[in-house]
Amino acid sequence: MRIVLDIWRQRGPRDPGRFVRYEVPDVSEHMSFLEMLDVLNVGLVERGDDPVAFDSDCREGICGMCGFLVNGDPHGPTHHATICQTHMRHFADGDTLRLEPWRAAAFPVIKDLVVDRSAFDRIIAAGGYVTIRTGSAPEANAILVPKTDADRAMEAAACIGCGACVAACPNASAALFTGAKISHLGLLPQGQPERARRAVTMAVQAREEGFGHCTSIGECAAVCPASIQLEVIARMNRDFVKATLTGRDEAAPVAVFPRRGPAGGGG
């Protein structure tokens, strides 16, 4: 089949960018969306043009590196799947598809459809972990975890960090991403000692990165390829409000990485 593409082309962060129209004539319905772009790129290189830059790595929906909007839908029209796991059989011959990068102040465009998501790394660094020295762990079965808690924690931990939640949110909020990690660790006994501190430091860092606030709209959960549920945000809100009001002064509401810190969040 034949596919027409309107792709966002932007040479670098300072380039204003624009949509450019391309045509891919021989698309097989078995191709993945990214393989279709590979074919386009091969043609572009053969013509001596600059290929379209897009991020991808594992191409099996787990690494979270790929992602852009197809006709206004993050990761394309099939929900709960990444764009690398979306196949061309979901499109029709002659379709015109508009490809646009994630847009958020916290996700500056690097080139074409590639954006910088290091803000997510800094949010995790701000508190998305359990402090446990290598080698100091107790025997694994010494701490029992009820199966339902483990299952719920796993659901939240399934987040792949792709950024579709931010892309879909009218406020460019990172609440689903942040809430998923806070929920994952907050549901497990191992995560309890730092629970209050974590909620505060991660939420403060998310704010510092320039993400918007959550208005419970639900677009994020609807497009999430890992099917993270909206309730993780409620859990984050509860932990945050509780931590602030009960006033365990474990965490200062100061960002771990102040805005416009070094790229990549180094020391």
Binding site: L69, N71, G72, E100, A105, A106, P170, G212, H213
Partner: peptide, 19 residues
């Protein structure tokens, strides 16, 4: 502040999952 969080608007963003 949410407006600042997305300084460059989308050409198209489908919001079909929310009310």
């Amino acid at each position: 502040s949410a407006r600042e969080a997305r300084p460059v608007r989308y050409q198209e963003l489908r919001s079909t999952h929310s009310s």
